[in-house]
Computed example of a mutant assay.
Amino acid sequence: MTRPPTAAQRRVIDAADPVTGRLRGTEAQLAALVKRGLAFRHPRPPHDHFLTPAGHRIRAAKEEEAAAAAERAPAPGEVPAGTGVFAARVGGEEDPYDGPGRVREVHSAWQGLLELRRMTNPDGSVERPCDWERAHLVRAAALALEAAGLRPAAPDADGYRVRETPQPEAVAVHGPDAAALRACAAALERAGWQAGEYTEPRTRVRYLLASPRRV
């Protein structure tokens, strides 16, 4: 059985960029994480280190623990102060965090995602979604929408909702009206996605089907 990471290694993993998984630490710490299969060294300059899927799972487990603890605790005025966990808003969240730091957090997460595109797309393009986005479709689409300044749905307000679909590499985006859907489609297309409007056969509700562009 693989030994769990040390406390120092856990701190490096927990401090990884929430979107890109980029790591910061000493050479010895990063080398130890690579040896354990929890990180990899990117072959292209500046040869940064990133979490592997196994490393992401360890970090995700910590995030789930933090989220569970936050649910048990009394809600302060502006929620996730103190958790340090960024999450793209997919729409429908109860009491979504709208504090003054949210815009900065979204901007930082989006810039990190663009950097991940540059580092991992074979041609270094930031105009086209990367493998991380294809593996986290709902979160990636939601981040693109929020980074474009659009608002997710809340219990007391209309907005977008991003949901999984049975189709591979596709998410459904719902909005309160046709204008909102057009705004979402335009934002996603600027972010490197392709989006088309469809009608749900039974309910006749219009929605977007969006997927990351490959070329």
Rank of each mutant, 00 (worst) to 15 (best):
L23P: 00
R22T: 07
A8F: 01
T83K: 00
E27I: 06
D98E: 15
C130M: 00
V12T: 14
P4M: 05
R213F: 01
P4N: 07
V12L: 06
A186H: 13
A187P: 06
L33K: 09
P53W: 00
A141G: 11
R204G: 07
L150D: 05
A8G: 10
R214V: 13
A66W: 08
E146H: 10
R163H: 06
V171N: 05
P96T: 06
A88C: 06
A186T: 15
A180H: 12
A54Y: 04
V215H: 14
E115V: 04
P176R: 13
V126Q: 14
V173M: 05
R10N: 14
R24A: 12
L33M: 09
R102D: 05
D123N: 15
V90F: 11
A87C: 09
I13R: 07
P122V: 03
R118C: 05
E105R: 15
P18L: 07
G55P: 05
T199S: 11
A140V: 10
Q194E: 13
G92F: 04
A16Y: 05
P74F: 06
E127S: 11
T165N: 10
S125M: 04
G175V: 04
E27R: 15
P96W: 09
A32L: 05
T2V: 14
R44C: 03
E164C: 03
P152K: 02
